[in-house]
């Protein structure tokens, strides 16, 4: 059952990943990417990390893909062209490099030898479900799997407190920096730097007026 599920999810994921890369329409590519994010969430569920799965959907499918869409709507340079990306001269090298990376990663995963207490990655067949890893209900493993949100919270507040606060600082810095970089003074009508003469848009002329 789970194997079939895995195959289905992997198949869908592969398809959407491919269509992300191959689609010439940017929005469609972004939609495929969102689909791929979703299949990653499904894989997280198969790995019994439902907390991660929910976060994956919330952050990536819900937020990052929206950001991508807005980015696409924003950054298209010239009007009049369709929302497509042209075939690139780097396509063939890109494919080759991608395949090489894939081969290396695949080789690495297959060839991995477990260190002492670890399961070898290639021997996952013998591995039992994580939640079953320890029978007694109070074990950290079990609570970590069954109540990951809680355990993550406790760890964030104690062991990883510096990383946590630093993440807050990082988010703030990103917010501040992005605002500072993207912000243009409303009063100034200087050009965006693309050589376009500054042009004060008329207040209402561009409103679609049914």
């Amino acid at each position: 059952m789970a194997r079939i599920l895995f195959l289905v999810i992997a198949g869908v994921g592969l398809t959407s990943a491919l269509s992300t890369v191959l689609s010439r329409n940017l929005v469609r590519a972004a939609v495929s990417l969102a689909g791929f994010f979703f299949t990653v969430a499904c894989l997280f569920i198969l790995l019994e990390a439902e907390f991660l799965a929910a976060l994956q959907v919330l952050i990536y499918v819900g937020a990052v893909s929206i950001l991508l869409m807005f980015g696409i709507m924003l950054t298209r340079g010239v009007q009049g062209t369709d929302l497509v990306s042209g075939p690139s001269a780097a396509r063939l090298p890109g494919i080759v490099v991608g395949l090489v990376v894939f081969a290396v990663l695949g080789y690495a995963i297959f060839e991995e030898k477990g260190l002492r207490t670890q399961y070898s990655w290639g021997a996952l067949d013998e591995r039992t479900a994580i939640a079953r890893g320890s029978k007694e209900p109070g074990s950290p493993l079990r609570s970590a799997v069954n109540n990951m949100g809680k355990v993550v919270g406790v760890e964030l507040m104690t062991r990883y407190v510096i990383a946590f606060e630093l993440a807050g600082l990082l988010l703030t810095a990103a917010l501040v920096g992005a605002v500072a970089v993207a912000h243009r003074e409303e009063d100034e009508t200087r050009s965006t730097g693309s050589g376009v003469p500054p042009e004060k848009p008329e207040p209402t002329a561009d409103k679609p007026n049914p």
Partner: peptide, 19 residues
């Protein structure tokens, strides 16, 4: 962008609240 920043922030808030 601000939405993403605050959405990521909830990523930290939920585990905190749960734990």
């Amino acid at each position: 962008l601000m939405f993403v920043v605050f959405d990521v922030e909830t990523l930290f808030l939920f585990p905190w609240a749960a734990g």
